[in-house]
Structure formats: C-alpha cells, structure tokens
Design a protein around this nucleic acid. Structure first.
Length: 481
RNA sequence: GCACCGUUCGUCUAGAGGUUAGGACACCGCCCUUUCAAGGCGGUAACACGGGUUCAAUUCCCGUACGGUGUACCA
C-alpha cells in the first residue's frame, strides 16, 4: 500500500515549491492507488502563524490537490497536527534514551555558541562535541539524574555512532553515502519538550505507515540522521525521494524579491489552477515524450519518481504564461463565461448574458494571457460608454474629412444584411471607402477606432457582428456629431 | 571551511557508447492577414573543463571548475 504525505509548516503562505512537492506526492499516490496524507509540522512554536494552515489547505484545494487524510478530514492515523501529538514524541524520546541511542544534554545556548566559535577558530567543522560539553556522558549518571530531578533545562540528543557510514538509495538520485563522522548529534527533543523536525518526522512517518517520503532536496543532507533514527527504533525505512528545488533566475532557491512565489500570488494574477499545476509538474519532471499539456488524469497515470530530474529548475514565468494561454484556448467557452461573468458584474457592465460573453471570449481569448484581461481588453463590448480616445488619435480622426464622408456613406447604407456575412460586410466597406477615395485599409483602421476606441482587437467584421447594427450605428453617430 | 547534491541551447528538457544532439518557452524572419493575436513554415542557439576506459564518448570512471543545498533547541 502506497502511503505518502505532504508535511508543511504553518509558518506562512503556501510556497509555489511546496505546491509542487504536494503535487508530486498527490500524483504519486493517485498513480499507485495509494493514500496522500496532509500532516502539519508545527513543532516550532516561535514560528507558528495563526491561520497559515487554513490558508495552505485553501491554496492546495484551489490547485485541485486533495488529501485522503489530514487535520481537516480526519483519518485512522491522527491526530495530523504535530503539536497535538506532543506526548507521543516524549515517549519515543525516552525509548531512545533507554536503549542508549540518545542522551541528555544540559548546555545553554551560550555554551553552544562558544563551542562553535572555538571550533571555527580551530578550523574544524561545527559539530556537537559529546566529549567536552555538559551531557550525560561527561557529567555521569549520578549528576545527570540529579539535574533531571531538579528539572534543569535539558535536551535529548541523538547519539550518532562515530564510525558508521550511512548509505541509502534515493528514488531520484540513486546511491547516496554519508560518513558517520560528519553527522551531528542532532537535538531530538528541545528544552521546551517539543520534538525537532527530525524526531517528529521519523516517528510520524513510521506511525502513519508512510511508504514513500517525497520531499524537497533541502532535506537530503539530514536524511542520514533520519536513517539513524529508523535504525535506533528498529523500524523499516521508507523509500526516500528528494526532488530538485525550484530556483530564481540566479539559481538560488526560489524566493521573494525575484517575483511571486506564493500560490496566493498566482491565484491573484489569474492563472488557471490546472495551468499552474501543469507547468509546475513539468518543472523537474517530464514523461519522456514531447507532450507538454496534460490533463490531471494523464499526470496521475504518467508521473513517476524515476523521471524526476536531479538538477534544480529555474522557474520560467514566461513559459507559465504560455501554459495559461494553452488552457485559455482549450477550456470550453461556457466554463470561461461562468468565470468571467462575475468579474463583469462587479464592473457593473450591462451586456453580461452568458451567450454574449461566450461570444466575446471566443473572439478575444487568443489575444490575451489571462481570462480576466478580457474585462479590460474587450470593454467596448460590455458598455456603450467607451473610454475616451487619446488626443492624437481623436484629432486625426476629426480632421479627416474623407473619413467622415466615408463614414456617412457607410452608415446611411447600413442594413442588417451588412453584418449578415463577411462578404457583405467587405463589400459595404469597399463601397464606402471607394466613394471617398479611401483605400480599404485606410478606412478600416479608423472605423475600428471609432467602434471600439482601440487600435487592436478581433477582426472588425466579427466585432461589429457581435455588437450588432444598432450599437455600431450609434457609435458612428456619436463620432460624427 | 566541511558534507552532500548537481552541471545538454538564454530557460524547461529528450538523450542511457556510434544521433545532421530532438522538442517546448523565449527571441528573430517569412507566410497568412483588415489591426493585434492565433496558426503555418523557417532560423539563431547547448553537451562546463581536463584526464582516462573504449575502435568510438554528451553518454561510463576519476579529477578540476562552477553552482545549489545543508551545516540551528527552523522546518
């Protein structure tokens, strides 16, 4: 049974990189008929942000990533919030103390700082020095028990075997080897009684029967510590898979300052959830074919850890935009209309019937990146009070007597048949232009400006056809007067 | 500093000893055209470097360089 988990910390908004990690977990679970659990890792009380968990769940839900178990839905392995599992960690910490895999340490923050400074000065790697600091071994059993008896501040540290090499297989990277001497005696239980990530993570993954740990590459260096913990408990290892990081343009870990990185930012900018998910899935994974646009279902069946790439991927906002246009072109018009109508209503626009809006979207969607842009880009469809023309265009139009003549001809001979077909329209335009000795192009551009108050848009025939004869004539009359 | 991980067009990537090194985004050009797009066609552009191994290395091995991550009583 495949059981995976996504385990964010509620310290802020959901990061785009976290979204991808969650996605990979979810895709992997779905593809293997497994279970994806959400677990909240809130063991750092100092960084806890109220409401963050809810925000992250909401962002995930927006992206269509749902869980099978979690704090918001329950499940057989709860509770799914680590702060509610406080006693469990203490219990397992004690087990490690009893079997000699962990020990008590009483050093203060200042003492530890001093230790690191000494080590740096001596040019050696900063690492807890079990033989010189104040711990169970240097103090002796008697003194240790005495300190514990009087409730002296203490932590529990992992006793890392000095000379063992840790080697493990990573599903995306292959064999990874770390020498035991490089691994620090990690703190397992902090002086406030809360576990560190390392302990909580291993205990929970075991208790929740997680089969595959799919997480970001930043966890790779601490994986040996986790393996040591599994061994200390005598537990079976899950499969580890460390996925590459999402990077800024300068190849550093993707962060603010270089652009939007929170999922809520992408929501606000108007991306389709499926487009964002599709793009992000491709950032570090591909199926080995040349296909780039996938349904969610295709993603679920095709995704595999073996095809996740090893190197970090620079997040390409332009390609994301392209992906969004792909979805904009592929999504059924009535779905798009359902999304756009509320935005139009909010603007208090008058022409917002679903059918009309559908037609507008059909005309304009190839010209924008976001659906929401149509509100602005196609404003002349939704209201008859057009934005003022810019001064230069306006004076050009007003001073063009030939144009006015042509417009009069165009308007006077206007009938329903003009907009009945492209051919009829073209013939009508030509006749009006010819009567004033204008070239067709020289007439069409100003006509567009007068009808839409814009220089670009869909083909004029389609535009006017959708607007209808009366609205077109009204706009020409407004200009002529 | 040390440890680990990585390195194919500007970007995302395909490639698993012998390829004209393929695709996509972006960029440029042409076509289409009633503007802008979309679409079609075409183009510029990559195997970090040095040693091996091999008849043959982008591909395997070892170094070097560069980059990233980690090195907390944060996750």
């Amino acid at each position: 049974m495949v059981r995976v988990r996504f385990a964010p910390s509620p310290t802020g908004f959901l990061h785009i990189g976290s979204l991808r990690t969650a996605l990979y977990n979810s895709l992997f679970a779905k593809g293997h008929s497994g279970v994806c659990v959400l677990r909240i890792e809130d063991t750092d009380r100092t960084r806890f942000v109220p409401g963050a968990m809810e925000e992250q769940i909401e962002s995930l839900r927006w992206a269509g990533i749902e869980f099978d178990e979690g704090p918001h839905i329950g499940g057989q392995y709860g509770p799914y919030v680590q702060s509610e599992r406080f006693d469990i960690y203490a219990q397992y910490g004690m087990q490690l103390i009893e079997n000699g895999s962990a020990y008590y340490a009483f050093d203060t923050a200042e003492e530890l700082d001093a230790m690191r400074q000494r080590q740096q000065a001596a040019g050696i790697a900063p690492k807890y020095d079990r033989s010189s600091m104040r711990n169970q071994y240097t103090l002796g059993e008697h003194e240790t028990q005495r300190l514990l008896g009087e409730h002296a501040e203490h932590v529990i540290r992992l006793k890392v075997p000095l000379h063992s090499d840790i080697r493990f297989h990573d599903a995306v990277r292959g064999e990874v080897i770390v020498h035991g001497r490089e691994i620090d005696d990690q703190i397992l239980l902090k002086s406030d009684g809360f576990p560190t990530y390392h302990l909580a993570n291993v205990v929970d993954d075991h208790l929740m029967e997680i089969s595959h740990v799919i997480r970001a590459e930043e966890w790779l260096p601490s994986t040996p510590k986790h393996i040591l913990l599994y061994e200390a408990f005598g537990w079976e290892l899950p499969v580890f898979a460390h996925v590459p990081l999402l990077l800024n343009a300068d190849r550093s870990k993707m962060s603010k300052r270089h652009g939007d990185v929170m999922v809520k930012d992408f929501i606000a900018r108007g991306y389709f959830p499926d487009a964002l998910v599709n793009y992000v899935a491709l950032c570090g994974w591909n199926p080995g074919t040349e296909q780039e646009v996938f349904s969610r279902n295709a993603l679920e069946t095709m995704f595999s850890l073996e095809r996740v790439s090893k190197a970090g991927a620079i997040f390409d906002y332009k390609k994301l935009d392209w992906m969004n246009t792909e979805y904009l072109k592929a999504t059924p018009l009535d779905v798009l209309a359902d999304n756009l109508v509320p935005m139009l209503v909010e603007r208090k626009y008058e022409f917002t019937t679903a059918e009309f809006v559908k037609n507008v979207i059909g005309l304009l969607r190839e010209r924008v990146t976001f659906l929401s842009e149509i509100v602005e880009f196609g404003d002349y469809f939704f209201s008859d009070s057009l934005n003022p023309l810019d001064a230069e265009t306006e004076s050009q139009l007003i001073n063009n007597t030939q144009l006015k003549q042509a417009l009069q001809v165009f308007r006077d001979d206007f009938s329903e048949t003009v907009l009945a077909s492209h051919e009829a329209f073209t013939a009508h335009v030509q006749a009006a232009a010819k009567a004033s000795e204008l070239k067709m192009g020289a007439f069409l551009k100003p006509l567009r400006q007068i009808i839409t108050h814009r220089n670009v848009g869909a083909e004029l025939f389609d535009t006017m056809h959708l607007l209808g004869m009366n609205r077109c004539i009204a706009r020409i009359n407004t200009f002529l007067s």
